[in-house]
Write a protein that binds this DNA or RNA. Sequence first.
DNA 1: GCGACAG
DNA 2: ATCTTGTCGC
Length: 219
Amino acid sequence: MTLPDLSVLREEQRDLAARTVREDALGEVRLIGGVDISASRFEQEVHAAIVVLEWPSLTEVARAGASQVARMPYITGFLGFREVPAAVSAWHDLPVKPDLLMVDGQGLEHPRRCGVATHLGVTLDVPAIGVAKSRLCGTWPELPEPVDSAVPITDRGEVVGMLLRSRLRAKPIHISIGHRISLDTAMRWVRATLRGRRLPEPTRRAHDAASVVRKAFLA
DNA sequence: GCGACAG
DNA sequence: ATCTTGTCGC
């Protein structure tokens, strides 16, 4: 694994951020894709999986996976450079392309507004939403207990995402714009695909799929 | 210098 | 991220 020049990568992220479309620029959504990467700290490979679900049944119609040697280690704030290449590979192997991507990780909730969901969305120029399980940056007011409560996440005076109580007494999830979608529309799609779970179906299924890809690689 | 820190 | 058993609750 090559040791990356972070100042160069920071510039790349600023470029990707500048090209991010923060408004709705998507057509009718009939297929939703879930993206996740599986990796172990004791291995050098990363395993990407994309599952394609039909809306509104949320039944799986396609999936693709890709295993690659990681180009760099995990460094907070630079996740895209580690995970996006394998995800792009899986994308090109899909027999049908989804109209919208839900990525496990941040979108604009990132110091330079370039989380993995934005990185992947802009790279492919496909509508994308970031669904993260914990915080990267920003602050928010107290989140009410009731399911479906949501509060804005602010970083340096800018709303970068929403904290959503997707399930009762569960740790809330972070929703942010990835690319070509508004925050409101992103929230609509996440809520519509939750089905009583903490994580939306696309992301949840992608996590399982990525685990399968890793097991297959190790076998 | 100190604290924070997606996956 | 992954490593793991039991345990609590609907």
